[in-house]
């Protein structure tokens, strides 16, 4: 189905992390909140194969629970922002005129802000917690979907089958949902895959800055931030969460590349 083996590798990595996230409470060898201060910063051993952090908590168990936050924030933000963006893009592209002008100027305004800075500002105002991280990233995330969908709608809406549907008296809503949307779905799926990777990085960045999950919650970005304090004497505390973020983001990008090669007729592989 896919021409590159990297697509499959990406899918497998995502599947492994997703399973680890879903079954973390049963699979994790230790409680991710169980502090053993006497064993702080212990190096990897057979019992704790990624070692223990500054509070003596098992890093592997925290990583597994952290996957729940990273992946769920990634997927939820993309689902919500995708839904909003697709709706906006469909309306904007299909109707044109003033709805198009207003929506696209709004998109321009939001795109003019440096993304992460706006997210930091929003979370600072709303207060640091996961829900507000989702809100902030959604506020930013729908824009790229809206712009992509609008462009696709513009190219599709003049086709004969849309003309035919319109002539046969179908409602605008039905034309958009039943006739246009399925025909522009492929680039949207590709965009969604890349967006998940972007959101995971953004969530980790916000948590790294102390603007994500509350202190103590196992979150990859926060683990990386805690590790930074002791990076000279105990690099393993930051290496493992760093690797986890890198692997997942890379996997989503592999998958996105594969999907794009599969769906985009303009893209070819040498």
């Amino acid at each position: 189905m896919f021409q590159s083996k990297w697509t499959y590798i990406g899918a497998v990595i995502i599947a492994v992390f997703a399973l680890a996230a879903i079954f973390a409470p049963w699979l994790a060898p230790y409680n991710p909140y169980d502090m053993r201060l006497a064993e702080q910063l212990s190096l990897p051993t057979l019992e704790h194969f990624m070692g223990q952090d500054a509070n003596g908590v098992d890093i592997f168990s925290r990583l597994m629970h952290g996957a729940r936050i990273s992946l769920s924030v990634g997927v939820i933000v993309v689902l919500i922002s995708g839904t909003i963006g697709i709706t906006m893009g469909l309306v904007s592209g299909y109707y044109g005129g003033w709805p198009d002008t207003i929506l696209m100027r709004l998109v321009d305004i939001l795109m003019a802000f440096p993304g992460l800075l706006l997210a930091i500002a929003l979370v600072s105002v709303l207060g640091p917690n996961i829900l507000n991280v989702v809100i902030a990233l959604t506020v930013l995330g729908w824009v790229s979907f809206a712009r992509l969908v609008r462009g696709q709608v513009l190219s599709v809406k003049e086709r004969e089958y849309i003309q035919a549907a319109r002539t046969s008296g179908q409602s605008d809503a039905r034309i958009m949902v039943v006739h246009i949307f399925p025909n522009i779905l492929s680039p949207v799926i590709v965009q969604a895959t890349f967006s998940v990777a972007g959101v995971i990085i953004a969530e980790s960045s916000l948590s790294f800055l102390g603007l994500g999950a509350p202190p103590g919650t196992p979150s990859w970005g926060a683990m990386l931030s805690e590790g930074k304090q002791v990076i000279l004497e105990a690099p393993h505390v930051s290496i493992f969460p760093g690797l986890a973020i890198m692997l997942v983001v890379m996997a989503f990008n592999f998958l996105g590349d594969g999907l794009r090669d599969r769906f985009d007729p303009k893209s070819t592989i040498n």
């Binding site: 502090m35 509070n55 640091p128 509350p214 202190p215 103590g216």
Partner: peptide
């Protein structure tokens, strides 16, 4: 925050859930 997290874990042992919020 790091110290507060340890206190949070200690209080949990006597049955107090400490909701830790940092701003």
């Amino acid at each position: 925050t790091a110290i507060a997290r340890i206190i949070q874990a200690q209080l949990l042992k006597i049955g107090i859930h400490m909701d830790l919020k940092s701003y």
